[in-house]
């Protein structure tokens, strides 16, 4: 698939639409995690509107590419991408985190397009390893994409999975790290220890790529290159926590907190709208 200027524009516009939903959903629910959702908007836009082989009308299609949101708290962005892509009606997004809604605070099996329940961090890459292993066993050519948070990869389970994936040469597995450099308790020392990140993944037998995670062309290209690797590939996407809403950018304050009042809500929507007009 060639990436013409029209497609680039479309992917950028979808990212802003995801951002708008992240703000509406979390504000409407008076809870949720906007910071790490806003940072992953372009990644999800590219995956769901360019990269993955999926059929929203047939979410259980056996040949589908699989996506695991290992950083489950980015559920607002994930649900928005699924709804915009047509897995379920966009109207439903405002039921996010409400009682009896399908759209649980963290992704839960039973939502069309959700492959596995996530939320307790560090497990999604293992699930991805299992799906990729199954593809190898069954000689199927679907791919598995796993989106991880950078705070999340402080969990030991992630590195167990990283070892396991390279042991089995899972060239059908692509991990993406949303490297926004801020976690719940702000900028922890462990965040520094994670550097140099590409070297760590390389040492574990992976093929690393480092990109600007808000640049759709770079994301598309990195995914193309990742697929050429003969081993699992990881895309370290440098991003900005809270991207697109000025007061949410580069702060831990909005990791797990929606706009505090109507004024903040309106500012956020206005800034996202302005960005949309610039595209």
């Amino acid at each position: 698939m060639d990436l013409n200027p029209e497609k680039v524009r479309e992917l950028k516009l979808i990212a802003t639409r995801i951002r708008e939903w992240v703000i509406r959903m979390t504000y409407n629910a008076s809870s949720g995690h906007p910071g790490g959702s806003l940072s992953s908007a372009e990644i999800l836009s590219v995956l769901y509107f360019h990269e993955m082989r999926i059929d929203p009308k047939n979410p259980e299609w056996p040949e589908r590419d699989c996506f695991v949101l290992s950083k489950g708290h980015a559920s607002p962005a994930f649900y928005a991408a699924l709804a915009i892509r047509g897995f379920f009606p966009e109207d439903e997004l405002l039921t996010f985190r409400k009682i009896k809604s399908r759209l649980q605070g963290h992704p839960s099996l039973g939502i069309p397009g959700v492959e596995i329940s996530t939320g307790s961090l560090g497990q999604g890459l293992s699930v991805g390893v299992g799906m990729a292993l199954a593809a190898k066993m069954d000689s199927k050519n679907y791919r598995v994409y796993v989106l991880l948070g950078d705070g999340e990869i402080e969990e030991g389970n992630v590195w167990e999975a990283a070892m396991c994936a390279s042991t089995h040469k899972l060239d059908n597995l692509i991990a993406i790290v949303d490297r926004n450099r801020i976690q719940l308790d702000d900028y922890t020392n462990t965040m520094e220890i994670l550097d140099p990140l590409p070297e760590k993944w390389r040492a574990f037998g992976w093929c690393p790529f480092v990109i600007n995670g808000h640049n759709v062309e770079e994301i598309v290209n990195a995914l193309q290159n990742a697929k050429k690797c003969d081993r699992p590939a990881v895309i370290i996407a440098n991003t900005i926590k809270g991207k697109g809403v000025s007061y949410m950018e580069n702060t831990a304050k909005y990791h797990g907190k929606p706009p505090e009042n109507e004024e903040e809500f309106k500012i956020a929507l206005k800034e996202i709208e302005e960005e949309r007009r610039r595209i």
């Binding site: 695991v68 596995i116 299992g130 799906m131 069954d138 396991c164």
Partner: peptide, 25 residues
């Protein structure tokens, strides 16, 4: 071909088991 010894990784084993199961195993 249907046996995977993941090594000393009980946590990864359970997650991997879930992924395999989701893919029909």
């Amino acid at each position: 071909e249907r046996f995977i010894n993941v090594g000393l990784q009980e946590q990864n084993m359970m997650g991997t088991a879930a992924g395999l199961a989701r893919s029909g195993k």
